[in-house]
Amino acid sequence: MRKAIVCLGVAAVLTAGWLIAGCSRARQATRLIGSTSILPFAEMLAEEFNALNPDMHVEVQGGGSAAGLQAVADGIAEIGMCSRGLKSQELEQYEPIVIAFDGLSVVVYPGNPVSDLSLEQIRGIFTGQITNWSQLGGGDGPIHVITREEGSGTREAFQKMVMGEARISRRAVTQESNGAVKELVRNDPASIGYMSMGLAGELKNLSIAHARPTRQNVLPDSKGQRKYSLVRPFLFVTRKGAPMPTGAKRFVDFVLSPRGGAMLEKEGLVAPRETGQSH
């Protein structure tokens, strides 16, 4: 009998210890899920944040903008990453925080002679009406159009800003990540795709209506006008009406701080604070 009581006591203490340890870990861990466009930047910020705050831990996962919103709604993540503006019915449920503006680059093979297109020309390419590079001042050859899968934030942003009501051609090859698009465009001289300006790397960025996708052109001027037209917000999204956990709050503050902003700027994004100061 006494033995059984001792056993129970030990088990209870162990369980309690485990629970307390579990709770304290849960309190300090912050999870971010969402857009693969924001993912590399968020990882970089999280690494720096974790190094600066040993008592905190931020974890970052991809999955796409829609998955990020879903994860916040389900309580799987404290912060969702969304690479497009929220729709009006989403605004009823989520609280967006703009962490940066991103220029959307239209990218081609580095050796492609074409370097400037109008929005109408890009729309023509992606709807499938323009099919040969010679129609655009390049060499003779078919255009290989690369798009992203349904539900990708980058695709939604592209659809909204470039395509409008027009549909992306059925004969556009669909890749499921920025990395896959990049790999394809880097190796295929006939290809054209789109991705975040900061991720384009060694690919050739087309200028659109004679404006290059640079930080200068993405920033609004004193009248709030931008030279480069394809700009979208990068959002951190939290649940509306619920107080943010301490860890998440501190991470957001860090990202919005001058230090976080400088890190984002270095990677080719445009921090919102800077935008404010330039007015």
Partner: peptide
Amino acid sequence: NWLDVPHSILDPARTLTSNIALEMGY
């Protein structure tokens, strides 16, 4: 993974499985 019926073996295509896996997440 394009959305058209392939006309030659050098054309891309989309299969039933890749359609599900590409879009299910979203």
